[in-house]
Design a protein around this nucleic acid. Structure first.
Length: 636
RNA sequence: GCCCAUGUAGCUCAGUCGGUAGAGCGCUUCCUUGGUAAGGAAGAGGUUCACCAGUUCGAUUCUGGUCAUGGGCUCCA
């Protein structure tokens, strides 16, 4: 007698060693409804396996993330079957689970999203049939025979080891698969096809173009609706839409990938930069500026001409070839070389808001997130090996200060020496240990990407997390062992000998344009007071008061509050509504009472109204709030 | 760069089975508006439907190409 304890504590006893199907059957009998798969001795398996008597079994329930992945992978099979039913000539390739759902790459005639309803209704038929997923193990030869009409599967099979090729069958549909799968298709309750795109077989541009169908599924229809609602919410804060609505920036065919910033956008931009400059000054940075166009010879010296040329914009001037900078570093090298340095001058922290241009592939462009012209908040820190730990710590602390100002959290990743790299083992060890030491001392947990560093040195990447939980790589701290060498940078040591400084490239925002876009989506357009393009709007309740409102605007403007008057001949109700929709933090109504008493009546975005504030009672807390750059919504 | 979709007024979009275009918002003017989420009326606005060719008596509509945008792929030393 063998007993198995199910997740909901029920116990089922078996006469013999149970098979997975026995377990599945007892689940369907009501012993544990939520079971989708099991883990035996640590291996994730479906419910169609033999169970050893001494196995340690753990069940994966629908609430587990793993359970959801199994469901979605099974849904990919269902989708593939549905596609085959509709397009018999289609050839399946692979169908994995991804972060938000699953996809299946299929060789078929290109289809558009118009095909989704038909595929979805075909999938519903398969789901309603509640066919069980059955696992079969066949020999390689048998597998080759079964999939003889599908060159992609044949390629996959031929790469597998000789024994144990598993197939999964639900109804008549059979697919090559490692598993595991849910017990039967009926467990798929909410399913939706999301998008379609082209993809290459084996991600190789030279090989067949496939159709990649994306979908998502849940154990519960409500979960699906919640997910679809979340997508809708994310779309509402799309920075491309909000940029138009809030009059921040625009894009034009005449300069693809090069954003135009409007007056409102520049107010935010300037607020960001003013803050950046203030924080960097505190940390002992100096600010520099280098030209955007530099002679080819410089790029040859830096190595960019050899390695990065296809991404650079070039031009010929007076028979000399020039390139627009894709990075700021070579210019920074020239700056360093204008002086002789003593060890006492180090560390030297030189920042630059540098405008760079990179000719990204046309298909890669996307709003402010992927552009061809952008500003990097770059800085180069020149130092000795002894400085590494402290300097890197300094950057981490600075990054934390700046990110938390926006309510952004972050995680850290350390990338180590790649296969193709320059420098000696000792140099890499010293550099990597420096970064690791700084990370350890900083104390926040970090991930390690072995071999993911740049060829010229190891790096720390900072990934921020926005209000929707999405992550973005913004900050980076890269040690560079190549450029100081190529440009023969030196400093005089205590020993009166020339030494090679160590250099770090670092950014906090990364690309200002991209960070701007992230902030728009993070705040959903509702910027904190210190960043808001229009901080206060004055609404005269009738046209006769427009002149007085203008005089108030001048006073507030002088006090340092960004302010506008809505002079339109509209009702107060409408003006307030529109100011709210544009997320103006301070909405001030001007009527005769206010004019007579010289006071202000202010409505904040939380809907609270304060009447009869004197100019001082208004400006003092507002200016303090702006100066503190707080996220706190309450001002008074 | 590759695949699919899209490109019509400042914005969001409709439309023309081929006969030179519409709505709402916005804008202008007038009337209104005296206190916290959309007041009313009239008017202007498209070098004519991204651009360039082709078919046609005639193209915004059909065909081809180009450019741009969106979703992916790839790329992001």
């Amino acid at each position: 007698m063998i007993s198995i304890t199910f997740p909901d504590k029920t116990i089922k006893e078996f006469e013999n060693i149970p098979t997975g199907m026995d377990v599945a059957k007892s689940i369907s009998e009501g012993f544990a409804r939520n079971c989708v798969a099991m883990r035996i001795d640590g291996n994730l398996l479906d419910l169609s396996r033999e169970i050893q008597q001494d196995s340690s079994i753990e069940f994966i329930t629908v609430n587990d993330e793993e359970g959801l992945d199994i469901l979605r992978h099974s849904t990919a099979h269902v989708m593939a079957e549905a596609v085959l039913n509709i397009y018999p000539d289609a050839k399946l390739t692979i169908g994995p689970v991804v972060e938000d759902g699953f996809y299946y790459d299929i060789k078929m005639e290109p289809v558009s999203e118009e095909a989704f309803p038909a595929i979805e209704s075909e999938m519903q038929k398969i789901i309603k049939a509640k066919a069980g997923f059955e696992r079969q193990v066949v020999s390689k030869d048998q597998a080759l025979e079964i999939f003889k009409d599908n060159p992609f599967k044949l390629e996959l099979i031929n790469e597998l080891a000789d024994q144990e090729i598993s197939l999964y069958q639900n109804g008549k549909f059979i697919d090559l698969c490692r598993g595991p799968h849910i017990p039967h298709t009926g467990m798929i309750k909410g399913v939706k096809l999301l998008k379609i795109s082209g993809a290459y077989w084996r991600a190789d541009q030279e090989r067949e173009q496939l159709q990649r169908l994306y979908g998502i599924s849940f154990f519960d229809k409500k979960e699906l609706n919640k997910y679809l609602h979340m997508i809708e919410e994310a779309q509402k804060r799309d920075h491309r839409k909000l940029g138009t609505k809030l009059d921040l920036y625009s894009f034009h065919d005449e300069a693809a990938g090069m954003p135009f910033f409007h007056a409102n956008g520049i107010e935010i931009w300037n607020a960001l930069l003013a803050y950046w400059r203030e924080e960097h000054k505190k940390d002992g940075y100096v600010e520099t500026k280098t030209p955007i166009m530099l002679n080819r010879k410089l790029w040859e010296q830096s190595g960019h001409w050899e390695n990065y040329r296809e991404n650079m914009y070039t031009s010929v001037i007076d028979d000399e070839e020039y390139a627009i900078k894709p990075m700021n570093c070579p210019g920074g090298m020239l700056l360093y070389k204008t002086k002789a340095y003593s060890y006492r001058d180090l560390p030297l922290r030189a920042g630059e808001i540098g405008l760079v241009h990179r000719h990204e592939l046309s298909g890669a462009l996307s709003g402010l997130f992927r552009v061809r012209a952008f500003h990097q908040d770059d800085a180069h820190i020149f130092m000795t090996a002894d400085h590494i730990r402290k300097e890197v710590m300094g950057v981490l602390k600075l990054a934390k200060r700046i990110y938390s100002r926006f309510g952004l959290t972050f995680h850290l990743e350390l990338s180590t020496r790649p296969k193709k790299s320059i420098g000696t083992d000792e140099q890499w060890e010293e550099a990597t240990n420096g970064l690791r030491g700084a990370l350890d001392e900083y104390g926040q947990e970090y991930f390690i990407n072995e071999g993911d560093g740049a060829f010229y040195g190891p790096k720390i990447d900072v990934h921020i997390k926005d209000a929707l939980g999405r992550t973005w790589q913004c900050g980076t701290i890269q040690l560079d062992m190549a450029l100081p060498e190529r440009f023969d940078l030196t400093y005089k040591g205590q020993d009166n000998e020339k030494h090679r400084p160590i250099m770090v490239h670092r950014t906090i925002f990364g690309s200002l344009e991209r960070f701007f876009g992230i902030l728009v989506e993070h705040f959903a357009g509702k910027f904190p007071l210190w960043m808001a393009p229009v901080q206060a709007i004055l609404l005269p309740i009738n046209q006769d008061l427009a002149g007085y409102a203008e005089s108030v605007r001048e006073k507030l403007d002088e006090a340092g509050i960004r302010c506008e008057v809505d002079k339109r001949s509209e009702t107060l109700k409408k003006k307030i509504r529109e100011a709210q929709l544009n997320y103006v933090p301070l909405i001030i109504t001007i009527g005769d009472k206010e004019k007579e008493s010289g006071t202000l009546s202010v409505r904040t975005l939380d809907g609270k109204v304060r009447m009869g504030l004197s100019m001082d009672e208004f400006t003092t807390p507002v200016l303090k709030h702006i100066k503190n750059r707080t996220l706190d919504e309450s001002i008074f």
